[in-house]
């Protein structure tokens, strides 16, 4: 199968079948389709400086895991789960060196399309707010509120009841709202 024969209309399933036959062209399309979402999740959970490395880790794990992927699982659910695992692994290793994440929360974004100081300030506030949440609460709010992943899919991803997803979302939002109010942001 060549790159010409593939199109963006191919379903994930078709691309996965191509990957299972050893086609790196199929994998390239799969990467292009999902990499922005993966990057967006990772940047909200981890250090942007290591983002490319983490993205590479995610997709190498995806390639390795494709033959073992359960057919009944939705590909994106499985992909986000791997993404979350990579983020969690990174946080564990970073926590051992420590204070890396805390220094991250004080960094201003280096690449912004809108050089608006107020925009940058709010972005920084959200980073700080997210960093104060537990990783479970933060993961749920990033996936649901920032990435629009349905609650049911999050529940399947973490293998928890949907009620737990709702509960985490509730507490995460409450904590975030309280933080923002404390910082002078009225919503």
């Amino acid at each position: 199968m060549s790159a010409d024969q593939l199109s963006t209309d191919d379903s994930d399933h078709a691309l996965i079948q191509g990957c299972l036959r050893g086609s790196t062209y199929s994998f390239r399309f799969l990467y292009r389709r999902h990499q922005s979402r993966v990057r967006s999740i990772l940047v909200s959970l981890c250090d942007p400086e290591v983002l490319d490395d983490l993205v590479q880790d995610v997709f190498v794990r995806v390639w390795k895991g494709l033959p073992k992927m359960e057919g009944r699982a939705k590909f994106t659910t499985w992909l986000y789960r791997i993404t979350w695992n990579v983020a969690a692994d990174y946080r564990r290793s970073a926590a051992q060196q420590r204070s890396r994440w805390q220094s991250l929360t004080h960094q201003l974004p280096s690449q912004s399309t809108e050089p608006n100081w107020q925009h940058l300030y709010y972005q920084d506030l959200i980073k700080k707010g997210l960093s104060q949440l537990s990783f479970d609460h933060r993961s749920v709010i990033v996936l649901h509120d920032l990435q629009d992943v349905p609650q049911q899919e999050i529940a399947e991803m973490f293998e928890i009841p949907i009620g737990t997803v709702k509960s985490r979302l509730y507490h995460a939002r409450a904590a975030l709202r309280k933080f923002l109010q404390h910082e002078g942001v009225s919503l």
Binding site: R39, Q111, Q123, I126, K127, D145, L146
Partner: peptide, 12 residues
């Protein structure tokens, strides 16, 4: 508010 000011994603 979160969606509007969510952390910027660096280009690969």
């Amino acid at each position: 508010f979160l969606q509007r000011y969510q952390p910027a994603v660096p280009e690969p």
